[in-house]
Design a protein around this nucleic acid. Sequence first.
DNA 1: TCATAGATTATAATTATTCTAAACTGTTGA
DNA 2: TCAACAGTTTAGAATAATTATAATCTATGA
Lengths: 142, 142
Amino acid sequence: MTKNFNFTEKLRETGLRPTKQRVKICEVLFNREKTFHFTINDLAKKISEDLNEKFSLATVYNTVHAFKDKGYLKEIAINSDKSYFDTNTSSHHHFYDEDTHELIDCNKDDLDTINIKKNITGKKINSVEVLIRVASDNQNQN
Amino acid sequence: MTKNFNFTEKLRETGLRPTKQRVKICEVLFNREKTFHFTINDLAKKISEDLNEKFSLATVYNTVHAFKDKGYLKEIAINSDKSYFDTNTSSHHHFYDEDTHELIDCNKDDLDTINIKKNITGKKINSVEVLIRVASDNQNQN
DNA sequence: TCATAGATTATAATTATTCTAAACTGTTGA
DNA sequence: TCAACAGTTTAGAATAATTATAATCTATGA
Ligand SMILES: [Mn+2]
Ligand SMILES: [Mn+2]
Ligand SMILES: [Zn+2]
Ligand SMILES: [Zn+2]
């Protein structure tokens, strides 16, 4: 998904019918400078705020999963409470702030490229992801 | 948690009352050569099989969380379906087999040590974990 | 325009997990 | 030794995220 307009065509090209709901959700997700991370509830809230209308929660789930399957979104595993999604679909790593429950992309210079030297035989690697859990350093709180 | 006997003392030392349930769960978890990964349901099943008795599911949850808080267990984030726990509490990385839903420890020589060069300011790093998702290579299935 | 496959929706169902409150038990100190 | 009490276990209810259902709606190609 690239930035700005004509989501209708983009959707059709990937075999998804450009329904009103999908186009609107595309706008909410992809019509912006920076990529971001969200939960289903974040997105549902953002939809009703930004668009001033409310899609069925089932539609939000359906759409997010469809977009994930088509590669517009990535799912990030943080914990078993809820799923996080990422509009940045490039291979990258994350900081997870355990105080604010916020996901932050690592930059290329935050850590070296991960090199898997030995893999399980007969398996191919689908993804390699680093999760760096951080929290406020209460050692020196004065 | 070290291998073999006297879990009663171990539990007491860390401030946990050595109840029958906790000692038994210690035996199931730690009285073995190799560390392993499990879900709550795996463990509940293993308890009723190995010990031929059934602890309340709430007790299994309580105990696993208590053990995690005391550092006997680690929780591994794989997806939002359920939590995985690990009796290997050392810092290490994982392969996740998306076919079998099996977690496999990486060896030290499977990948280089991860070096975080830049961290979020004001935060301390609690953990750095790599998850390598693998699946059967259906390219050459003949 | 029409038929139809595909989507949306409200709502119910499912599943993992946590909460509740009553009964039970390990520990401590008289 | 034993009563008292805090901590623990338990069944079952509650919660929360997610998925399933089935009726209604809509995009699309003929
Ligand atoms: Mn959790
Ligand atoms: Mn999922
Ligand atoms: Zn990201
Ligand atoms: Zn492990």
